[in-house]
Design a protein around this nucleic acid. Sequence first.
RNA 1: GCCGGUGUGGCGGAAUUGGCAGACGCGACGGAUUCAAAAUCCGUUCCUGGCAACAGGGUGUGGGUUCGAGUCCCUCCACCGGCACCA
Length: 933
Amino acid sequence: MNYDFAALESKWQDYWQKHKTFRAANPHDDGFDPSQPKFYVLDFFPYPSDVGLHVGHPLGYIATDIVARYKRMRGFNVLHPMGYDAFGLPAEQYAVECGVHPRITTEQNCANMTRQLERLGMSYDWDRSFATTDPDYYKWTQWIFLKLYNSWFDPASNKARPVHELVEQLESHKFYIGPEGELIESPARSLDVLAGAPIGSRHWHELTGTDQQLLLDQHRLAYMAEVPVNWCPALGTVLANEEVTNEGRSERGNHPVYQRPLRQWMLRITAYNDRLLKDLELVDWPEPIKLMQRNWIGRSQGAMVDFSLANSDDVIRVFTTRPDTLFGATYMVLAPEHPLVDPITTSEQQAEVAEYQQRSMERTELDRMAEDREKTGVFTGAYALNPVNNEKIPIWIADYVLMGYGTGAIMAVPAHDQRDHDFACTFGLPILKVVDADDVDNTDPEAFSGIGVGVNSANDSVNLNGLPTPQAKTLIIQWLTDHGLGKQEVQYKLRDWLFSRQRYWGEPFPILHGPEGQIRAVNESDLPVELPEMEDFRPSASDDPTAPPQPPLGRAPGSWKHVEIDGILYLRELNTMPQWAGSCWYYLRFTDSSNKTRFVGEQEEQYWMNHDTADGTPQPPGVDLYVGGAEHAVLHLLYARFWHKVLYDLNHVSTPEPFGRLFNQGYIQAYYYEDERGIRVPADKVQENNGGFLYEGKPVVRHFGKMGKSLKNAVTPDEICRQYGCDTLRLYEMYLGPVDQSKVWHTHDIVGVHRFLQRFWRNLVDSDGNLAVSDEPAATPLRKLLHQTIKKVSDDMDRMSFNTAIAAMIELNNALVSLTKVPREVAEALVLLLSPQAPHICEELWQRLGADSSLSHQSWPTFDPSLLVEDSVEYPIQVNGKLRGRLTVSVDADSSEVKHQALHDGSVQRAIKGKTIRKVIIIKGKMINVVAN
RNA sequence: GCCGGUGUGGCGGAAUUGGCAGACGCGACGGAUUCAAAAUCCGUUCCUGGCAACAGGGUGUGGGUUCGAGUCCCUCCACCGGCACCA
C-alpha cells in the first residue's frame, strides 16, 4: 500500500479540528493542568494579502509549529495562536480602484489565509484567532490610545502616570511651571545657568483654564504637534520617503512633493529612551538586533553649548559630542528650517537663503543624510561668537544639518568632522586643527575624527593643549558650566512617533475636536468608535500645494463626523492610526482573545506572559519564543516595547518586556527571469538549456531575488501540497537550511525529502498495507544508532536546528531499508521524533502501531546514555597540521601509548623522515598533531 | 551614506567550544530490476595529476594570531535587510 498523503493529511486535519487537539486551556478553563510549565510561541503578525501565501511566508510558521508540537510532547502547556494584522493600505487602494469595500476584501483574504494555513497542518488554537479590523479588537486599541492620551511621563519616578496625578501635584504646588511649560520640582533647580534664571516660572493656579489644558497636553504621552511630512497635493496624501523619488516627485504618477508641516498625533516614545535601552538586557534576543535597537535609540553623551550672535541677543544652542574641539569651530550651520534662520539673515542674503530653503524642502531626508553627496549651503550673512575665544564665525545654512536631530544647529569643526571638512573645502572656509594624533599622518587631507591630544586650544582661563581627548572633554564641559555657556547633556537619536495617517482603513482615533480647538477624549464607555460606512475612499486631490490635507474620513456622513455633548458640537478626528497600532499589543490579546470586559484578563495575561521562576533560574519575561523576519528589527519591536512599558507602568500588564526570546527567520529567495526587453516572465515556464534559459523558445536571463508576485517567481504552498503533501512541504522548507538564514527555493529538490517519507512509510508498512514491524528487540548496533539519533534530534530541536535533525532521521531511516521488519522500539521512537515536522504521516503510523488517540501529547523519546559510549576511538594524525594517518585505540589508552603508536604509523614515518620532532600534541578523544622540522 | 547580516563542491547545506572540510539531500555518472519506462535498490561523485598507492591545491580577496583557522583579529570585494508614512 502506497503512502497516500492526500487522504491521510485531510483525515488528520479533520481529526485535530474535531477533537480540538491544539486548544490551549487558560487557568480557569476545563482541562487546565497547573502542574505543567507554560510555553508561549508566537509568529510575527501577518498581513493577509490578496494573492495569498507563497512558500516563502510559512517558513517561520512551520518553524514555530514544530516548536509548539515539540514543547507539547515535552510536557508544556503551549499557547500557539494566529491572527491577522488586517488594516492597511492595499485593501484601501483596491477599494479606491475597484470600489470593493476594504472590509469585504479583508475578510476574503483572511479566510483564504486561514484555509492555506490549515492545509499546512498548523497546530494553532484557532479559537483565539482575530483580526485587528474586528471592532471587538480595535475597541481595545483605542482604549490603549486613551491610556496614552491620559498619561504623562513622570521623570522623578521614571514612569508613566495618569494625568490626574499630575494635576494633583500641580495643585499642591509640587512643581513650578517654567516659561516653556517645563515642570520644575523645586525653586533651587530653577537657577538654570544655561538660559539665565527662568524667572518667568509660575504656579498652576496662576494659569488660565486654557493654559492649564495646554500645559497638560504638553506632557501627555499622546499629543498633537506640527511635523514636516512629504505632502503630495496631486495625490492628496502624505508619502513615505520610499514613495518619493530622488527628484522629489511621487513614485506613483510623478507628481511634485513638498515638505510641509502638518499638525498630527505624536506618541512620546522618547520619554522611554533610557528604559528601552536598558531593558534590552532583560531579553534573550539576537545580539545584532539588540545592537540595531541601541543604535536606533542612539544615546550619545556630549555637551550643549550656547553661541551668542554678533549682532543680536539671540543665542544658537548646539549639541556636540566633541566639546573638546570647540576651539576648532570655525563656522556654524543651521538646518534650513531652523527658526532663527529668518531673523538673522541679512537683507543682502535673503533672496539666496529663501531660494535654498525652498530647494531643500524638495529633498528627502534620506537624500540629505547621504554623506557622499556634494555639499550645498548658503551663507546667512550673520556671525556668531565662539564662546571660548569670542572669534566671529560665519553662520551658514545647509541641508546636511537636520532639524529633527539635536538642536537643528551645529558648530562646524572641519578639521575633525568629515562632513564639516567637505563643506569647508567646498566653500573655502577656514580649517583649524585642534586635536593631534600620534599615529596619524599630519599631512592627511581628510578630517581626523579619532581621539588624540588637544592642540591650539587655550584661552585665558582654560587650556586643553596636551590633554588626551576624554580629559579635555571633562575639562571644557566644566569650564562651560562655570561660565554659564553650556553643560553636559545626553542626546538621543530616537524621535517621537508620528501616529496619524490620512487614510480610511485604520483605527479611528477616539478623539473629538471642539470649536475652540479644545481636544476631548471619547468616553471609554463609548468605545469602539467604529469606522463609518463609506462608498468613496479617495483622498481629495488638489493643484494647490498649500491646500489643507483632506483625509478620506472627511467624506464620512455628518452623523458620524459631528458629535454634540453638553451643547458643544465636536468634530471627530479624521485621521486614523497607523498599521503599527494593531500589532503593538496583539500578543496580549491572544492570551484571552474573547474577553468582553477587559483588553485582557489579569489572570490570563499573568499566566502566559510571566515565567514561573520557582526553580530559581531567571527567565526573560514575556512571550517565550517570537519568530519573524529581521526587517522588523527596529520599528515594530521598538513600538511594541514602548506600548508594553506604558501598560506596565499603569499596572495593566505584569512584565516589563513583551518578548522574552526573539528569533529571526531568513527569507526564501528564488530565481526570476527577464527577456531581452527586461520584462519578467513566469519562472515556472522557463526551461534550462545547455546552461542557458529559454522561455517560449527565446533566451531569457536569470536573476535572483526575494520570492513574490512582482518578480513572477512565487510558488504557492497549495500547488506543492497537492503534488507532494504538506508533510513534504514542511520538511523541505526546514531541510533547506538553518531557519535564520535566507535560502534559495528549488521546487526540483523537493523529491529528496518526499522520497524520505515514501521510504519511511515503506519501512513500516508493507505493500499489502500491513504493519511491517516486529516485537523483537533491535540488534545492538541498530539500538545504538537509535539512541544516538534520539540524542542528536533532541539537541537539534532544542536549538531549532531542524535541517540537521532531519538529516539524522534520514540516516536512521536509511539503516532500516534492508530489514524485512523494523523493531517496534525503533519504529515508535522514530515516529515520535519525526512527528513535530511531519505530523500527518506520523499520526497515521502511530495509529497503525496501535494507538487510539493523537500522538500530539505523547512523551518525547528519551535515550539511554550508556548506549552512546564507544569503547574505541579513531584518531586522525597530523604532521605539521596536515592529515597523514589514522589510529584506532581503546578509549582509555594513555597518552604515551597513543604517542608511541602514532609515531610508528607508516605514513607518519614517511612524513617526518629527515626531520626533528619538536612536539607532539594530543587532544584526548579528538586528534594528534606532530610538529617536526 | 549610516546601522546590521551573509559569503564553503555543479546546487541547498554540514562541521554545536579553534581540532579529520564537504554529514544529509538534489543533480550527474555507472550498475541491478524491467519488453520498455516510471518507481525502487546498489555504487561513484570537492578540484588537479596518477591505473593505483599517493601527491598537490581548496571554505569571497589579501594579510595576521596559533602546534592547528570555515571558525578568532585586520583589510578589501560582492550580495541581502533596515533607515522612522510598506509593515
